[in-house]
């Protein structure tokens, strides 16, 4: 049965979200060139064997500037999915993201919270470290950006002003 289903993406009604559009001014202020050249990454090449818990330590790049933001707290737009509304507040301190607080979360988070009770402790330290990293954009499962990540992004867009 070659057509036997394997990935079944269960159809869920997509909440209709308000069409929105915004843009920063085309003549945004020029950004200062980075003080040091961050390591450019090549396109990944084939590497068939994933390693567990044995990957090399990433080289610390303490002087890598990353994007800079204006200090302050920025509240992102509210984004919706069928589970509910998501809205975050991003805190910028010293030009860097120091905190991301969720102001509203969909109720479906309860299930995730149960899982995280055993998953989180092992990741916790690494996550805190990564959280302070400066990012230009965010990858996550679909609807992440639709709700959470886009709220973060919209907050960062304000911080860029």
């Amino acid at each position: 049965m070659p057509t036997r289903a394997a990935v079944a993406i269960v159809a869920t009604a997509i909440a209709v979200v308000l069409l929105f559009s915004f843009k920063t001014p085309a003549q945004a202020r020029p950004r200062t060139p980075a003080a040091d050249v961050s390591q450019a990454s090549p396109t990944p090449s084939a590497s068939p064997s994933p390693s567990e818990s044995s990957a090399p330590t990433p080289t610390p790049t303490p002087t890598n500037p990353g994007p800079t933001y204006k200090d302050g707290q920025y509240t992102g737009q509210v984004f919706q999915n069928q589970f509910g509304d998501t809205q975050v507040k991003v805190t910028i301190s010293g030009g860097r993201i120091t905190d991301v607080q969720a102001l509203q979360l969909p109720y479906d988070r309860q299930r995730s919270a149960e899982i995280s009770q055993y998953a989180a402790p092992q990741l916790h330290d690494e996550v805190l470290q990564a959280q302070s990293a400066q990012i230009d954009t965010l990858s996550g499962a679909t609807y992440t950006t639709d709700s959470y990540a886009q709220s973060v992004q919209s907050a960062l867009d304000k911080a860029h002003a």
Binding site: L105, I115, A120, L123, V127, A130, Q131, T144
Partner: peptide, 9 residues
């Protein structure tokens, strides 16, 4: 994004 921690990477 961290799959379990909405505020973390």
């Amino acid at each position: 994004r961290h799959p379990n921690d909405i505020g973390a990477l």
